[in-house]
Design a protein around this nucleic acid. Structure first.
Lengths: 298, 298
DNA sequence: CCTTGAAACGTTCAAATCGTCCATTTATGT
DNA sequence: ACATAAATGGACGATTTGAACGTTTCAAGG
């Protein structure tokens, strides 16, 4: 087994994306792939950079193990399979606890240049809706759903490693409120924001709003995302949320909210910068915001 | 920040910039890195020099603070100076949200072949106890603690990737009960079991005991670990736990329990194979169990 | 003062990488 | 269809790297 490291050699990279070592080195020298050099002149390539390159050029990662990534399965021809059949595959993998298959399904789509937001909305989101339905019909057990969450969370963390390291400029933070322990949506928010170029700090789950307020004050982010899957007390939530909203306003922080717990009725009693049902909504909003911030900077 | 240990050894420097010790020494001898020598000929490198060298070449620099991390021996007693400074470093990193530093502190110890169980008990465990105390004294905020958990969890997942893939033979599974959303202990349990050679499946958090029972029936593991950090209703818990215990007995599954919520009083009303306060307890018990299973197999 | 284990020393060596050149394949233009 | 340009993949000796080895230094404890 190859050594797992943040930096890979040209040979590892070349084998992984199935091109010759010569070509890879040439691309490095042309500046297509960012590289650093050792004192003796050997190239070192960041894992995220090589994956990013492969993604842009539509090259499939044929041998991920060389990059310290998990091995591939036979299923799922990249791209051709499409999101639809991928959902069914993912549902089955998650229910079976087959982490490898699940990972491969998601990675394939990611490498096939699908935007993260669409993968989240139209693959993972749908998969968990499907699992929820089966659970309701007693065709699936709670532990299967939880295990699926666990697996998915790990996959998200590994996806994060493949993202290019964002510059330090605009900061986005977020988390979930006290009593809400559903960590997947907030993890997805983070990846979407990072993909747009934000530096991100996930605060975690089940945090009292009072503490979220402090986090905004300490870290002064450009964006605060809040995914609400569960609310203990509506009235408490609304009053405390008002404070968070106010602090965000005072700090110039855009407050983006979402989550299935935010009913129409509830939203009318809240003040925020944007609301989104889906990750694609979040991406759309944050993209305009990021461009605005970038322009302002110049 | 003037430290006494401003001079570091080649080994420390080499690991900080992720190159082999050989190369680093060679570069020193070539004059690429300024070094001083002790009377006996050992190289001593100044912190500033190694950082400057790394910056000039765009090599990845970990955290300069790490270079001051004193080596920690296996024979150093718990609570010795070395571990204590590592704990302090980790506490600060987690409170600051500095994932890089936290990761390197933990990885350094792991790569130095320290048993995972000790790292968990004497580094991570103590660190979170310390954070908890600061929180109680209003010196730390909730979001800092949660963010620390988030960071640690990611590190654990990355540690998992470094572990050799276990054979399929003995299976261990575990998780937390409904209402208990503290995922770190159960994640640590998983890594310890994997280190011993078990195949593991983490079921996730907040699972009703009834569903845990089903998991045992479906998966028929050799070991079931249960980390209990929070209990909603004592009586409910005890009665339902009895069922889990029974099913485990019927399936030949060893039931290992632990966690701060299991008081002396509570434990007297529970039937289990083993109880452990620490990861080292778990490791000790599971080790004998694994050997027994291995012998049986032959 | 002596013992002892860990870390650092210097050296050696196989494997990996460098830069360069060149044959082959693929794309492009007339 | 043909010629030309561009990109690819392989091969070469020279250099760099990482790991092994036995020996020496360091720091701690009896």
């Amino acid at each position: 087994m190859e050594k797992t490291s943040e930096l890979v050699s040209p040979r590892q990279a070349a084998r992984a994306i199935d091109v010759s070592e010569s070509s890879l080195k040439r691309w490095c020298d042309q500046g297509l792939i960012q590289t650093t050099r050792t004192a003796g002149g050997h190239r070192k390539i960041r894992l995220a950079d090589i994956v990013q390159f492969a993604r842009e050029r539509g090259l499939s990662v044929g041998d991920p193990e060389l990059l310290g990534l998990p091995p591939i399965n036979q299923h799922s021809a990249p791209g051709s399979a499409g999101l639809q059949s991928a959902v069914a595959l993912l549902v089955q993998a998650l229910l079976d606890g087959s982490e490898l298959t699940a990972r491969q399904v998601i990675f394939d789509l990611y490498l096939a240049k699908h935007p993260l937001s669409r993968i989240f909305d139209e693959l993972i989101g749908l998969a968990f809706r499907e699992i929820g339905e089966r659970w309701a019909c007693n065709q699936a057990d709670v532990y299967q759903e939880r295990r699926g969450c666990e697996i998915t969370q790990r996959i998200l963390i590994e996806l994060r490693r493949l993202q290019p390291v964002p510059p330090l400029t605009p900061l986005a933070i977020g988390g979930t409120i006290e009593g809400d322990n559903y960590s997947l949506p907030t993890a997805m928010c983070e990846l979407v924001m990072r993909d747009l170029g934000f530096q991100t700090i996930p605060l975690g789950t089940s945090i009292p709003i009072a503490s979220l307020v402090k986090a905004v004050q300490h870290l002064r982010p450009k964006v605060f995302w809040l995914s609400v899957s569960h609310i203990r007390d509506d009235i408490d939530f609304v009053t405390q949320f008002a404070e968070l909203s106010e602090i965000c306003g005072a700090n110039g922080t855009a407050l983006v909210v979402g989550g299935r717990a935010l009913t129409e009725d509830l939203r009318q009693r809240m003040a925020y910068s944007a609301y989104g049902d889906t990750m694609q909504h979040l991406e759309g909003f944050a993209k305009t915001l990021f461009q605005a911030a970038a322009v302002k900077k110049q």
